[in-house]
Design a protein around this nucleic acid. Structure first.
Length: 832
RNA sequence: GCGCGCGUGGCGGAACAGGCAGACGCGCCAGGUUUAGGUCCUGGUACCCGAGAGGGUGUGGGGGUUCGACUCCCCCCGCGCGCACCA
């Protein structure tokens, strides 16, 4: 290179951070609405829960999302990129018990810690929209929404067997039970019979399923699949069986028991009938002489954990109830059993068993010596002999009037016949259950209902919202199986809004997933006091253009938020039916092949330590460059020190270019390289291929370095090139980019921030290539390369290729059979 | 068990839409600067044969389609994820 500058500003990442952070605060660069009139884009990360400080996972997710937000800002969009906290929840409550303080103390202290970290981590948040779900100004509207849902019949109270976490001492939604254990603490979940509040998500099952078509190209396919499976729509029929009821004196009459089946075509093969052992129905139907046996069996079943019970390779067990059911099409009386392989809360809790064509029924039939009757000839071997049920397509046999029909025809005909004769009808069944939203914990939004002896359940009037939490702390919050709010007697005792008499408040609080089901709407108008959100603001911003978060919310949060959006749409408060137009699931940050967890201290990588060692930009760059955003990052495999080296290289390049003697000299090769980089990086960021975009920026850096070291550098081109590099890098490494920008002579303090500068434009004229390398193959193997004009004709290229040294040598005198020409990039010669 | 996804150098990963496999980086090797080391700069780095020129092989394995396959199709192996007695 030319003379090394005697004094070159060193690159100290921490000094650079300290220099620009206060300047940026003053410039207020990221407020939504700064670009009035520009098209809007709402970019959102799943908001954090305030447990301690930010960790590596936050750094990745928010870092990725920040690249996109900054890019759209640079492209001239009016971007809203807000931040808030999902600040109700159990950890704060548990910490408060341990420390004998109020949960708010822990919560708001952590929020301040995280906010300071986010600021230093240079995320382009619009801080003016900050919200916390535990603020009364927020949960007032959570309560308001609950009441509106209730008015529409979508929030209701019922008694049922619900999931209970013995450790957290609260009920859980189905979505919060993972393989029989509490999603939060991992404790085995048990069942309790309780009266609880539910949201009627099942009313929206079809729309939640069907509207996923709108998300088909913009959401990760596996998330859509998981939601689809969770909703679990299956098409079939309800069929009525008449079961004889008996008491000590004998038969006393018939009870109609409906079953759900997806295979009404196999009705002739139903040789027995099973009800869920733990359903009340089993007791109702049981003959008196079988009652003792049933009770004993029920006790046994109750002792099994959900995990044991769900093991699919278990021996089938059950009890004969001593009664029979009438098959409505065959007129046959078939025995009725109670068994635990039939689930009480799916379908109707009772099934018709067709052992020939259902493996579970077959296993049961073989265990109890029950007949197996083939009614669909699938071409498979006899299930009675092989023990393998034949579930596939086939032709009906042993089925009276339906013999000879194909499976699908038979399904349609059986359903039609049942409907015309009575005894059944076509039906759709869902796996999805209603959302249990009551929690027996303190740190959540109180359910705004008053219980009055005279008037029953009464809504708290809107003008009395919010129902604020009483001041409980420390030991008073200890879980005792009922809500801690019950202990606040002064708070519980109230007057009935309807009759004015003495009444009590509902002491449960809402699942925190209720809070997070509408926060993205509140961000559009965070200070609004006339409702949960300003309809005009929401109309302007929704839907969220890009949502970023972990795949662990594939069902819980995302399903609930979609449900809320649809209900609010039906209430006329929202235009959109889907809240998140596009979704990105970032991968996890792991270490040495294992997930970081507090129980494995050796696996933990502390974000604060990493930032102290390498600086913010190097950590951000390492995360983005490590691989595709959706892949996991193994911190043991990546090199933050390599990122530091790269950033220092960029800073030196800027310094060297800034110190070149001013000149108008241009370098066409540099101009072309810059244009190509801008073009490629633009496309790569648009496609969210951020790791490759970084690779292209590194290539540009290398090219600019080389060109700077030439004896007669094209100073004007280099300055333009480094500026373009700085603007693009600004999305990834905000501090270093600003430092480079400043070294190039921009007065950042006066408002000329790189973060307020438009994304560079690639001159199309510079993208036109002067020549192209044409690969010449013989039989698919590269034998030569030719530099040709991009517009070369096929004939010309064919002639050139056939005459090339490599081809002549490889052909070795052989005749040419085919020549494939793909001008201007490739020729493939195939010899005879 | 059912469903989905993925297998590319020592490592993370590139390869637009079926057309130069290994971009970019880490690591490693050699040289230079400095020299105590590091930083920094230059070059090399899929594997095998060969001093070299060059040649051969190669994207988990096997087959197929094609002038041409990391890419498309079929079978197998391995890994990961989701659901899991859902009638």
């Amino acid at each position: 290179m030319t003379e090394a500058p005697a004094e070159r500003a060193a690159y100290d990442p921490h000094a650079v951070q300290d220099r620009w952070l206060p300047v940026w605060d003053r410039l207020d660069l990221y407020r939504a609405g700064r670009h009035q009139g520009a098209p809007k884009k709402y970019v959102l990360d799943m908001f954090p829960y305030p447990s301690g400080d930010l960790h590596m996972g936050h750094a990745e997710a928010y870092g990725l999302c920040d690249v996109l937000a900054r890019y759209w800002m640079r492209r001239g969009f009016d971007v809203m990129h807000p931040i808030g906290w999902d600040s109700f929840g159990l950890p704060a409550e548990n910490a408060a018990i341990k420390r004998d303080e109020h949960p708010a103390t822990y919560t708001y202290a952590n929020i301040e810690t995280q906010a300071a970290s986010f600021r230093r981590y240079a995320i382009s948040f619009d801080w003016s929209r900050r919200l916390h779900t535990s603020d009364p100004e927020y949960y007032r509207w959570t309560q308001w929404l609950f009441l509106r849902f209730r008015e529409r019949g979508l929030a209701y109270r019922k008694s049922s067997a619900v999931n209970w976490c013995p450790k957290d001492q609260t009920v859980l939604a189905n979505e919060q039970v993972v393989q029989g254990a509490c999603e939060r603490c991992g404790t085995q979940v048990t069942k309790r019979e309780l009266t609880q509040w539910f949201f009627k998500v099942t009313d929206y099952a079809d729309r939640l399923l069907d509207d996923m078509e709108q998300l088909r190209d913009t959401w990760p396919p596996r998330v859509l699949k998981m939601q689809e499976n969770w909703i679990g729509r299956s098409q079939g029929a309800h069929v009525d069986f008449s079961v004889g009821r008996t008491d000590e004196e004998g038969t006393v009459g018939d009870t109609t028991v409906t079953v759900f089946t997806t295979r009404p075509d196999t009705l002739y093969g139903a040789t027995f009938f099973v009800v869920a052992a733990d359903a009340p129905l089993a007791l109702e139907l049981c003959a008196p002489d079988r009652r003792a046996a049933l009770e004993a069996y029920r006790d046994e079943v109750r002792k099994l954990s959900d995990i044991d019970r769900q093991a699919t390779d278990r021996e089938k067990t059950g009890v004969d109830l001593g009664v029979t059911a009438l098959n409505p099409v065959t007129g046959e009386q078939i025995p009725v059993y109670a068994a635990d392989y039939v689930l009480a809360d799916y379908g109707t809790g009772a099934i018709m068993a067709v052992p020939a064509h259902d493996q579970r029924d077959l296993d049961f039939a073989r265990a109890f010596g029950l007949p197996v009757r083939v009614v669909v000839d699938t071409g498979g071997e006899d299930p009675g002999a092989t023990g393998v049920a034949t579930a596939g397509d086939g032709v009906l046999v042993n089925s009276g009037p339906y013999d000879g029909l194909a499976k699908d025809e038979a399904i349609a005909k059986v359903v039609a016949d049942l409907e015309s004769r009575g005894g059944g009808k076509g039906a759709i069944n869902y796996r999805l259950r209603d959302w249990l939203l009551s929690r027996q914990r303190f740190w959540g939004a109180p359910i705004p209902i008053v219980h009055c002896d005279a008037c029953g359940e009464v809504a708290v009037p809107d003008d009395q919202l919010p129902v604020e939490l009483p001041d409980l702390r420390g030991a008073a919050l200890k879980p005792a199986g009922t809500s801690p709010l019950g202990a606040a007697e002064d708070w519980v005792a109230t007057t009935c809004p309807s009759c004015g008499g003495a009444a009590t408040r509902d002491t449960d609080t809402m699942d925190t997933f209720v809070d997070s089901s509408w926060y993205f709407l509140r961000f559009c108008s965070p200070g609004y006091t006339e409702g949960p959100f300003d309809p005009e603001a929401v109309r302007a911003w929704m839907p969220v253009a890009q949502y970023v978060g972990g795949v662990e919310h594939a069902i819980l949060h995302l399903l609930y938020a979609r449900f809320f959006t649809k209900v609010l749409h039906d209430m006329g408060m929202l235009d959109v039916v889907e809240p998140f137009a596009a979704l990105m699931n970032q991968g996890q940050v792991i270490n040495g092949g294992q997930a970081m967890s507090k129980s494995k201290p050796e696996s933990m990588v502390d974000l604060g330590d990493q930032l102290a060692t390498f600086g913010v930009d190097a950590v951000r760059l390492t995360m983005v460059f490590a691989g595709p955003p959706e892949d996991d990052i193994d911190w043991a495999d990546v090199s933050p020190s390599g990122s530091v080296k790269y950033l220092a290289r960029v800073a030196r390049l800027a310094e060297d270019v800034a110190q070149l003697a001013p000149s108008d000299r241009r370098d066409e090769a540099v101009d072309r390289a810059v244009a190509r980089s801008v073009d490629e990086v633009t496309r790569l960021v648009e496609a969210q291929r951020l790791n490759v975009a970084v690779a292209r920026l590194m290539e540009l850096t290398n090219a600019l370095r080389k060109a700077t070291d030439l004896p007669e550098p094209g100073v004007a081109s280099l300055r333009d090139g480094v500026e373009a590099l700085a603007v693009m890098l600004g999305c990834f490494v905000p501090y270093t980019a600003e430092e480079v920008w400043s070294r190039l002579g921009h007065d950042v303090e006066a408002g000329e921030s790189v973060h307020d500068t438009a994304w560079p434009h690639a001159d199309p004229a510079l993208l036109v290539l002067e020549s192209v390398t044409c690969v010449v193959q013989v039989q698919g193997k590269v034998r030569d390369r030719l530099e040709v004009a991009p517009g070369i004709s096929e004939d010309e290229l064919r002639a050139l290729a056939l005459a090339s040294d490599g081809v002549v040598k490889a052909l070795d005198g052989r005749e040419v059979r085919i020549v494939v020409v793909r001008a201007p990039k490739l020729v493939n010669v195939v010899p005879a």
